[in-house]
């Protein structure tokens, strides 16, 4: 897929709870085709401590409004700078990058999308595309507490949403892998979130022989497969998360064991 570099305009910057915000970006020309699981790299100017671009998965593409959504949590100087953007501001993007989640096969209809924290971001776009293709995906979303549950109302547009929190302040108490929905049968699981969560889900999927994909978020420099910094260990050797991923079938990854 062709990659682009260019300036997009902030159409909206919506503050969300727990230090999250939703950046909506647009441009005059129609946005190129983007797939769920792909990501962008944003240039951050005027922040001396930020040198490299910042990587964000595509949260959603609103084709009617010609908008790309980025769900971002403020964790450092780069994201803090981005959070201050106002409508009309311009941001330089390299996009769309990476591979994408694979669509279910003909025999896969019961789909579970598991997200943790800000890792839910790419699952909204994935859920939207799956719903558009006639699937009824289920979402299982985990967070430390109720404040960490972001965009639930958006997910509800595309399927049933199940929730866990570590402190029980919303949904079932515990980790996503403790949720009762996992007693149901699923044909495919898509996961994005903290690494320990993805490993636990992978273990679960492996035990039940469920096809499973994860989206990794290794630290990147170039984002286009040139620097070889963001590698993950696979059964084919070290592979770039930015170009061979970010989505991997968990069978490919060494950490699934």
């Amino acid at each position: 897929m062709k990659k682009f570099i260019g300036n997009l305009v902030v159409s909206e910057n919506i503050p969300l709870k727990n230090n999250h915000f939703l950046l909506k970006l647009t441009q005059a020309e129609p946005l190129p085709l983007m797939l769920p699981g792909q990501f962008v790299q944003l240039k951050i100017d005027d922040t001396p401590s930020v040198f490299l671009r910042r990587t964000f998965s595509i949260n959603y593409v609103d084709r009617l409004k010609n908008e790309i959504w980025l769900l971002i949590q403020v964790v450092g100087d780069g994201t803090r700078s981005l959070s201050k953007n106002k409508t009309g501001d311009s941001l330089n993007l390299i996009y769309p990058l990476g591979n994408s989640f694979s669509m279910p096969t003909a025999t896969q209809s019961r789909l579970l999308l598991i997200g943790g924290g800000v890792g839910v971001a790419p699952l909204l776009f994935l859920g939207a595309i799956l719903a558009e293709k006639g699937f009824s995906p289920s979402f299982l979303i985990g967070a430390r507490n109720v404040d960490g549950l972001i965009e639930l109302e958006e997910f509800q547009k595309f399927g049933n949403v199940y929730v866990t929190t570590e402190d029980g302040s919303a949904g079932e108490i515990g980790f996503v892998t403790n949720h009762s929905i996992l007693k149901n049968t699923f044909d495919k699981i898509y996961t994005c979130g903290p690494t320990p969560m993805m490993q636990a889900v992978t273990q679960f999927a492996e035990n039940k022989s469920i096809d499973s994909e994860v989206s990794l978020e290794n630290k990147m420099a170039c984002g286009i497969g040139a620097c070889l910094c963001c590698v993950t260990q696979t059964h084919q050797g070290n592979q770039c998360v930015c170009t061979d991923g970010p989505v991997f079938n968990t069978k490919e990854l060494v950490w699934q064991i």
């Binding site: 001396p48 401590s49 930020v50 040198f51 490299l52 290794n218 630290k219 990147m220 420099a221 620097c227 070889l228 910094c229 963001c230 590698v231 993950t232 260990q233 070290n238």
Partner: peptide
């Protein structure tokens, strides 16, 4: 092995 990269000032 990963991690192979760390950002530093400039």
């Amino acid at each position: 092995p990963y991690p192979r990269m760390a950002e530093t000032p400039s």
